[in-house]
Design a protein around this nucleic acid. Sequence first.
RNA 1: GCUCCCUUCGUCUAUCGGUUAGGACGCGAGAUUUUCAUUCUUGAAAGACGGGUUCGACUCCCGUAGGGAGCGCCA
Length: 473
Amino acid sequence: MTAQIVTRFAPSPTGFLHIGGARTALFNWLYARGRGGKFLLRIEDTDRERSTEPAVAAILDGLQWLGLTWDDLPVYQFARARRHQEIAQSLLASGHAYRCYCTPTELDAMREAARAQGRPPVYDGTWRDRDSKLAPPGVKPSIRFKSPRTGETVIDDQVQGRVIFKNESLDDLIILRSDGNPTYNLSVVVDDHDMGITHIIRGDDHLTNAARQSQIYAAMGWTRPVFAHVPLIHGPDGAKLSKRHGALGVDAYRDMGYLPVALRNYLIRLGWSHGDDEFISAEQMLKWFDLPAIGRSPARFDFLKLANVNGYYMRVAPDTDLIAALREMLPNSADHADLASRMTDADWTRLLGAMPGLKERAKTLVELMASAGYLFAVRPLAMEPEAQKLLGPDGKAALQGALNVLEVATVWQAPALEAAMKTHAEAAGLKLGKLAQPLRAALTGRATSPGIFDVLVSLGRDEALARIRDQAV
RNA sequence: GCUCCCUUCGUCUAUCGGUUAGGACGCGAGAUUUUCAUUCUUGAAAGACGGGUUCGACUCCCGUAGGGAGCGCCA
């Protein structure tokens, strides 16, 4: 039997869950869930200055919104500091670590000097073999890992392939600060080991860390997990993703009106593919996703494609699902929060009725709401300039003709209304467009809208007739 | 500066030595249509450059150029 796969997502709670983190989490989640494994969460909150409780909440919230549920309770790294210290001490005892009495000032000077001479700015090993008895008085030592000076450290990465580091290029990293607190590379190794992580899938900015961490695993005699370092997402200009690009929190994508299912689909296709498949269901993702298929070059974030994917998922989504998504996101929407707070149950029902016509005309929920504005507009409607143009003398005449027909309509349903209007148009020698456009203007205040008969129905007989009368005079 | 990684249409990608280099987004044209969309048809659009290896390279190797990541008592 093969051991169960255990992956983890390990964000540091210094901000929201950004889009790159969301993709990393998605990959970890898919890999574990697709193979009957576990997906764990670890909050790397050892930076006490920058870690915040709201950030933790935002990250958990973002993961949940994306549907990336984790197993067990999240592990808080800071709470495990004592365990990390223990390991540091055992490394010291086994000769795999040593005390370093260099001060930060000295280290800065060392790096400056190295840089000035064109050498790599690394620790020179001053205290590696020096007797602690020579320690300057009053200096609290940090503890450094004694990394091998010769040979190579090889990472057989599931994404990057075999990556070889010469050990001489890796310096002795600090594992315990002079104040006794553990540092990242130690904590990560200890936690991943203790949590039973079998596969580490993370951003490739950690690739060199993998080499150093690998050495710690070796020193402790622990088995190494499998590594997979995925390329970072870049902005449209090819540079690192920044806030003005798309390095927003996933909450921002939610508020912009994207569906979690669409974001997931877009994210998985960024740097990963399965033949020519574009729209991939959750089941297919779980079945198909694998590490070696992840590309090694960084992908650029493309809002237009995200919008296209989102539009697709909106079109195929059940209307009630869209209503539910809207109810969740609208209060946070900059443009529509106000409207949302005023909407009655009747308004929501009306919106649901108009949904088939609305959803195929929008790329995001925000766009959808913008085009649904006519449903909630108050008489007499404000006319957009393009709509006003449709209400000239000819338009008003057409409107009056339509009104005569509609007022006597017995069945207020789209097919019946359409039949009645077509008959009327033929009798009057008008093209349907000459009738529909003024109607559209009168009913919505705009020159574009969902199908005009659907608009009539979703507005309801009384409101629709009233709006037409407003403009027919 | 040093270490590591990357390089197919504008963008996301397929190809795993032999293809008219395929798909998707976006863009152009056309069809459908009551507007706008949707949908359908269709067009333009790519192997960074230079050397090898090979009967044959987008695919393998080397170099160049360009891009990225890392080099903290941050994570």
